[in-house]
């Protein structure tokens, strides 16, 4: 496997503006990204799988993901599976509490109970992050939303969270190939030079991040071989 950006957990949240549980999903996601697991989590918003390019669609193929959904429709979990890959874990906010939706406030303004559930959702998500990454980072849980002002944290978010892509012309078509820049770097670092040809092994790795139609495999190989040769000559 190429050494793609540092292993992190991707968190994909329901955007549900129709219900308080949707807001809880969203705010819990931010709580994890900003406070509980900064450095170890990134996010991407669900509709970017559709509106974005291959880089966005490859997101869940690279990052193990946790889907946080507001309700049993499970848009985030199902959408991630449909357009990227099966989430490693899934949380449904409405299943974490026996409180009715009304008690949680509105989508626009959460009640105290809603904020409590948001905190519980964030903590549950953070515990899954620990499980997925296998190590426990020190976490500081804030019990109140509005108390001390938290340190400014840069959150890895939506638009920048996709896998790096490269544009190639394959079989006459402009094609975005996800992960190619880092695959090249990894290959070159291992002294695997282009005159050795593009092996089945390299194509297999490219396939992890890109759907390649069987009939087009030769064209992909050819285009990547040429491009990799160019990449190596530029680095010399």
């Amino acid at each position: 496997m190429p050494e793609l950006p540092v292993r992190k957990v991707g968190i994909i949240s329901c955007s549900g503006e129709e219900m308080p549980e949707g807001t809880i999903s969203r705010l819990a996601t931010r709580r994890v990204l900003e406070t509980l697991q900064p450095e170890r989590t990134v996010t991407i918003c669900l509709p970017l799988f559709l509106a974005g390019g291959e880089g966005e669609r490859a997101f869940a193929r690279h990052y193990p993901t946790i889907a946080i959904d507001g309700c049993e429709k499970r848009c985030a979990a199902r959408g991630t599976e449909m357009y990227s890959a099966m989430p490693a874990a899934s949380i449904v906010v409405s299943e974490l509490s026996s409180r009715s939706s009304d008690e949680l406030g509105t989508a626009r303004r959460l009640s105290d109970q809603g904020r409590e559930l948001m905190q519980a959702t964030a903590v549950a998500t953070s515990e899954i992050v620990d499980r997925l990454l296998g190590t426990r980072a020190p976490i500081q849980i804030k019990t109140s939303d509005s108390s001390a002002s938290p340190a400014k944290t840069v959150v890895s978010c939506s638009c920048g969270a996709g896998i790096p892509v490269k544009q190639l012309t394959i079989a006459g078509r402009e094609t975005e190939v996800a992960a190619l820049p880092v695959i090249y770097q990894s290959w070159q670092s291992a002294c695997r030079m282009p005159h050795q040809g593009i092996s089945a092994e390299m194509l297999k790795i490219v396939k992890v991040y890109n759907p390649i139609p069987e009939d087009d495999e030769d064209a992909w190989k050819q285009a990547i071989a040429l491009d990799y040769a160019r990449f190596c000559s530029e680095k010399e």
Binding site: G16, E17, G22, P47, G79
Partner: peptide
């Protein structure tokens, strides 16, 4: 009426 984008992703 507000329509959440995530609902459209599933296409119910």
């Amino acid at each position: 009426r507000l329509m959440p984008l995530s609902l459209l992703v599933l296409g119910e």
